[in-house]
């Protein structure tokens, strides 16, 4: 592989774009491919097969060829509302899984640089903050403040915009009240039930890192479900 290609992969990765790297296993030459780019001489003859693998996000040696394709997919985005202690552990865990993370919290004393490094923080109310982000159904929302005036607008936004994962921290009682409020706000029973609340898988822990781990476990499990569904 040429150093030029390596640098290009790193650059495109940082732009969070969809692309693929093609390698001719008999010549050793590589090339970057996306739907906008035309193929070079070594790969042109297999255009249809390459596009088929690319569209299905399939990785591997393309049947009947010596071409290896590896897809780089735009990562899933996770919005965390509440720059609280659990958020600090979440960020540590999430960085191992190639998610793009944004934290939203209007409370300045929580969102200090010293508490959160190398993560995008929006120090505004969720409504304003979410409007600035172009969201789609490949987004996940985790609310952690259990303060209705901060969490509820974010939950409403995520439900309306069909986020694939919505989880809300809070006790069973807190969640019951939250569901009531969302019902009053006009959301259907089914929509409200799609919220994971109380958030996280159950494994009996109560400490901050344990809660963070239980949230990440649930998020990863749900993410794997949509990734598989979208490709079948």
């Amino acid at each position: 592989m040429k150093t030029k290609i390596l640098k290009e992969i790193i650059k495109r990765n940082s732009l969070k774009e969809d692309f693929a790297v093609l390698t001719n296993l008999s010549t050793g030459n590589s090339e970057i491919f996306n739907s906008k780019k035309s193929l070079g001489n070594e790969f042109k003859n297999y255009e249809n097969k390459i596009k088929n693998f690319y569209n299905l996000k399939k990785n591997g040696i393309i049947d009947g060829t010596q071409i290896f394709i590896l897809n780089y997919i735009k990562p899933v985005e996770v919005i965390i509302v509440g720059a609280v202690h659990i958020a600090q552990y979440l960020i540590d865990l999430l960085k191992n899984f190639n998610f793009i993370v944004t934290i939203i919290d209007p409370r300045k004393y929580f969102t200090t640089q010293q508490r959160f490094q190398k993560v995008k923080i929006i120090n505004e109310w969720p409504n304003n903050a979410l409007e600035k982000i172009k969201t789609n159904k490949n987004f996940a929302l985790i609310t952690l403040t259990h303060d209705p005036k901060i969490d509820d607008p974010a939950l409403s936004y995520a439900l309306k915009n069909k986020f694939f994962y919505i989880g809300a921290l809070g006790s069973k009682k807190t969640h019951e009240n939250r569901c009531k409020r969302l019902k009053e706000a006009g959301f259907a029973e089914k929509e409200i039930r799609s919220i994971h609340g109380p958030i996280g898988i159950k494994f009996g822990g109560k400490s901050t890192p344990e809660i963070a781990l239980s949230i990440v476990a649930q998020l990863v499990s749900e993410t794997n479900k949509i990734l598989l569904n979208s490709k079948n």
Binding site: N13, V76, K95
Partner: peptide, 22 residues
């Protein structure tokens, strides 16, 4: 033979290793 579909969650596959190579 396994065909592996693009794995979003595999950090190993992308950034860390390639940046270190660079």
């Amino acid at each position: 033979i396994n065909y592996f579909l693009g794995n979003n969650l595999n950090e190993c596959m992308s950034e860390t290793i390639l940046k270190s190579a660079n």
